[in-house]
Amino acid sequence: MIKKIRKYHKWLMAFVGIQFLIWSLTGLYMVSMDIHFIHGEHLRVEHLREASPQQSSQTLALNKVNYSLSDLLSEYPHAQNITLGYLLDKQVYRFMTHAQGKVLVDASSGERLAPLNEAQAITVAQYHFTGSAAVASATLIKDVENTPSELSARHLPVWQITFAGFSSPTFYINQHTAEVVTTRHLAWRAFDWMWRFHIMDYDDGENVANWFLLLIALLGCVAACMGAVLTYQRVFNTSQAGAK
């Protein structure tokens, strides 16, 4: 019995053993890297946090809001998710309408702001970036076909601003609202690949329910159970009548 189990353990692991190595390696990376670091929180100035010594945090000056919400609602009656905040040092409204999509309006003049051009997008990225590296590239992404896999197409259109440096910190900035929709850097990109290899979905890493993972995990389960029997036998059972 033990003999058969040993043989099957060996042969099964010869097929799925590499995946056990991959599971442990990718799992170790994912649990040992701080998830807040992975999410690039260190790259972004938290403008909504308490003011830090280096960065004065801006508070709203409500008395300077000349274009009132009532004005806004009469001009854009179907505006939804209206938020008053800052774009650099300017107070702005951001909202959605069915007809116009995402809209950005100057809160002191009521003037609708044009979509960001390259220079503005770079300024916005630098405003949010904690580092001081130079800008390596700035690309406007408008089409779903040109969207990199690390960005969800629902954020389009966005400016992709990549800073120089080993980890290529990248900011994605919505062209209409000038908000940072997401960031990426080397460790996050590596994390995404680790995840793909962990769940054995090698194209986009979105499908845990793939048959390949099912097959290997099932075989792995059988192999691991046999391994458990072998360990039990070797650690706890010292009698010599094993070869039956």
């Binding site: 403008h47 909504l48 945090s57 801006q58 508070t59 709203l60 409500l62 008395n63 809001v65 009132s68 919400l69 009532s70 609602l73 939804q80 998710n81 209206i82 938020t83 008053l84 905040g85």
Partner: peptide, 26 residues
């Protein structure tokens, strides 16, 4: 959550007695 009609006027933001907010949402 949307109102069927919003006829009643909203209080102007300049009259709100709150300082130091960093963001305001309707």
């Amino acid at each position: 959550h949307n109102a069927a009609t919003h006829s009643k006027p909203l209080m102007p933001l300049s009259q709100l007695a709150f300082d130091n907010a960093k963001q305001l949402k309707l």
